[in-house]
Simulated scan of single mutants.
Amino acid sequence: MAKKENWIAPSILSADFAQLGTDVKDVIAAGADVVHFDVMDNHYVPNLTIGPLVCESLKNFMVKEDVKAPIDVHLMVKPVDRLIGDFASAGADIITFHPEASEHIDRSLQLIKAEGCQAGLVFNPGTSLSYLEHVMDKIDMILIMSVNPGFGGQAFIPQALEKLKAARKMIDESGRDIRLEIDGGVKVENIAEVAAAGCDTFVSGSGIFGKANASDANRYDTVIQQMRDELAKA
Rank of each mutant, 00 (worst) to 15 (best):
N6T: 12
P10G: 08
S11G: 13
L13S: 02
S14W: 09
A15C: 07
A15R: 03
L20C: 09
G21F: 04
D23G: 02
I28W: 04
A29T: 07
G31S: 07
G31N: 02
A32E: 05
F37K: 01
M40T: 08
P46F: 12
N47T: 11
T49P: 09
V54M: 08
C55Q: 00
E56M: 14
S57N: 13
V63S: 10
D66E: 15
K68I: 11
A69V: 06
P70D: 05
H74N: 09
V77A: 10
V80G: 08
L83V: 13
D86N: 14
D86I: 00
A92C: 11
D93E: 14
A101E: 02
A101Q: 08
A101W: 09
S102Y: 09
H104E: 07
I105H: 06
K113H: 11
K113D: 01
K113M: 12
A114V: 02
G116P: 02
Q118I: 03
Q118K: 15
G120I: 04
G120N: 06
F123I: 09
N124A: 12
T127L: 01
L129A: 10
L132S: 01
L132H: 01
E133F: 10
V135Y: 05
K138A: 13
K138W: 05
M141E: 09
P149G: 11
K163R: 12
K165V: 09
K169P: 09
D172H: 13
E173T: 13
S174Q: 10
I178D: 00
G184K: 05
G184P: 06
V188Y: 03
N190F: 11
I191F: 07
V194F: 05
A195K: 10
A196E: 11
C199D: 02
G210L: 04
G210S: 07
K211R: 15
A212P: 04
S215M: 10
A217Y: 07
I224E: 00
D229R: 05
